[in-house]
């Protein structure tokens, strides 16, 4: 298959570049602004949120008002506070999921690319098999196996993205391992792991960082999809996907605010993360960009 762009974020980034123009730094700025906004929300949630997100603070299903900007849910909880606190779960699961994928995918890719031989062939085959499989279906299967919980959901997400790291790293390593400086190090008697860690890894790091930032938006959307299907974390912890799913029950009783605000939180976060990753891509890897 051709150079497919499998992940949402890669594409949103492309779209955003079309929209804002490239090489201007504007992307990074806007993206990091949104990202920082969400990180601040997550870290300082107790100070920012007007109410406790799991306590009844008003009547059931109150429409947006001065007291409750985003209205209340059926249990009388403030939706604004739940959306703010929800960023904690969204961010921690996407960061954790991507981190796990990184921790597994990168070493495997390094070893596979450097050692080569049958190990490389077997690993590549497994990773390719996982890569062609639709991410969400894979995540659903793993999440169903592991059951609820932050760590378990993160692992299901990690399973989806591990092959990406593996492929990027493996191909890069295979490309650089015969270059002069690696040859030189080998001739000077450097050990295998030393060569991998000291000479090869730093060289492939930039592309890894780009992939990492790209996967964040995807992980976020996958988490929302999982919790929407009821495979997420247990209540009453605020979670956008879960709240959206329970909010949809009251939509016909004219409580539109229950699905609109958590939904917008997801859209805005996915958008911001992708723009950010595209910006990072431009900064770190000006050369690998396809240009027109």
């Amino acid at each position: 298959m051709a150079r497919d762009k499998k992940f949402v974020s890669e594409r949103i980034g492309d779209f955003a570049r079309d929209l804002f123009g490239s090489g201007t730094g504007r992307l990074t700025l806007i993206g990091s602004f949104i990202l920082i906004f969400y990180v601040i929300l997550a870290v300082f949630a107790p100070y920012i949120a007007p109410y406790d997100p799991i306590e009844r603070v008003g009547l059931s299903l109150e429409p947006p008002s001065k007291d409750f900007w985003f209205g209340t849910d059926n249990l009388g909880r403030d939706i604004l506070s739940r959306v703010i606190y929800g960023s904690r779960i969204a961010l921690s699961i996407s960061f954790l999921g991507v981190a796990v994928a990184f921790i597994i995918g990168v070493p495997l890719g390094l070893i596979s690319g450097y050692v080569g031989g049958w190990l490389d062939r077997v690993l590549t085959l497994i990773m390719d098999a996982m890569y062609v499989f639709p991410g969400l279906i894979l995540a659903i299967a793993v999440a169903a196996v592991l059951g609820p919980g932050i760590v378990n959901i993160s692992i299901s997400i990690a399973v989806v993205y591990t092959p990406t790291y593996f492929r990027v790293i493996r191909n890069q390593v295979a490309a650089v391992k015969d270059e002069m400086y690696v040859e030189a190090a080998r001739a000077l008697g450097a050990k295998r792991w030393e060569i991998i860690l000291k000479y090869i890894f730093p060289n492939v790091l930039p592309s890894v960082v780009v992939v990492l930032s790209m996967n964040l938006a995807d992980a976020l959307m996958t988490e929302a999809g999982l919790s929407f299907l009821g495979l997420g974390i247990a209540p009453p912890t605020p979670d956008w996907g879960f709240d959206l799913n329970s909010g949809q029950r009251f939509v016909l009783s004219r409580a539109w605010w229950g699905i609109v605000f958590p939904g917008l939180a997801i859209v805005f976060a996915a958008l911001g993360f992708s723009i950010f990753s595209e910006g990072i891509n431009e900064l770190l890897n000006p050369t690998i960009r396809e240009r027109r």
Binding site: E55, R56, N74, L75, P235, P236, S246, R249
Partner: peptide
């Protein structure tokens, strides 16, 4: 049914 999570949350409270 869909009400079960709400019940659990009210029991907790």
């Amino acid at each position: 049914g869909s009400t079960e999570a709400d019940v659990a949350q009210l029991l907790k409270r």
